[in-house]
Design a protein around this nucleic acid. Structure first.
Lengths: 146, 146
DNA sequence: TTTGTATTGAAAACAATATGCGGTAATTAC
DNA sequence: GTAATTACCGCATATTGTTTTCAATACAAA
């Protein structure tokens, strides 16, 4: 059920950089692509192990580095010090609402914000690569809890 | 040359929380307030040591925790995994342009972006605490270098 | 002062991230 | 197809940045 498009992107990246097509890399990609939300490497590795029990942490770690370089994933820093991965492919133009209570990350469309950021970057002669917008606060659920 | 307003804020926080007025805390505050830009704890500690050579890393670390809780500083994650401190007092409503080459952080006014974020948060019934906007890219200097 | 306790400084613990190494497996050359 | 090459895996361990422990000290209240 893995999207062939992302597989192709990774395969292309591997070919272009004279790397090797190993099943581990595509195993990790498989799990990552079919995951919803934002996972740390450790969390992601737990998911990978469920489907591919023989997977090692290092492989998940290094596979994600490749997937990141291939442009399919990006690191974001959540509410704790741990970074998590977000999907980049077909997930353009979104910002994050980060709950400081439960750590949940909600995505929202931020195309308007990006337009503003592009203007600002231009003023500063800054060549933008990636845009981010984050609001820290309390999510609906955690408000109810109190 | 230390702003008395920030000193008062810290002193108030200390009084309200039954902490103690130690010179170490105000030494660190002094250096932090008179610093421009964004420093990691380690970088900040280097600055502190220049003025107060006897200062220990632990003290700088813990003093910044207190200063943070007093609402005078906030952590931001820069281009590497290291967090840095930014000024909160009299530094409202700004976003960051982060250079992925040299790590430099440029601040910009983002009051318009915050307005948009407030709207979005309301739609999601999300209670906002702090707003952030970040653009990763290449700064003017680093563009020239290439 | 005396007493109680928060704070300090040094070192060590911790957690997250990253790497070195020897064996293994994917490619390439033949 | 087979051998040669070399990137990669998995394990263990190193590294880095951050936090905590603990005994000694300094602050604040009586």
């Amino acid at each position: 059920m893995m999207s062939q498009e992302e597989v192709k992107i990774l395969a292309d990246y591997i070919a272009e950089n004279a790397l090797r097509n190993t099943h581990q890399r595509f195993d990790v990609l498989d799990v990552f692509i079919n995951s919803e939300g934002h996972f740390s490497i450790e969390e992601l590795h737990e998911l990978v192990k469920k489907k591919y029990p023989q997977a090692s942490f290092s492989s998940t770690f290094r596979a994600m580095q490749v997937i990141e370089k291939a442009g399919l994933a990006a690191r974001i820093s959540g509410v704790d010090g741990v970074f998590r991965f977000e999907h980049l492919y077909k997930h353009q133009n979104h910002g994050h609402l980060v709950c400081t209570q439960c750590g949940q990350i909600i995505e929202y469309d931020n195309s308007k914000i990006i337009k503003l950021q592009k203007k600002i970057a231009a003023v500063h002669h800054f060549e933008p690569i990636r845009f981010g917008a984050k609001v820290r606060g309390i999510c609906r659920n955690c408000q109810v809890k109190r």
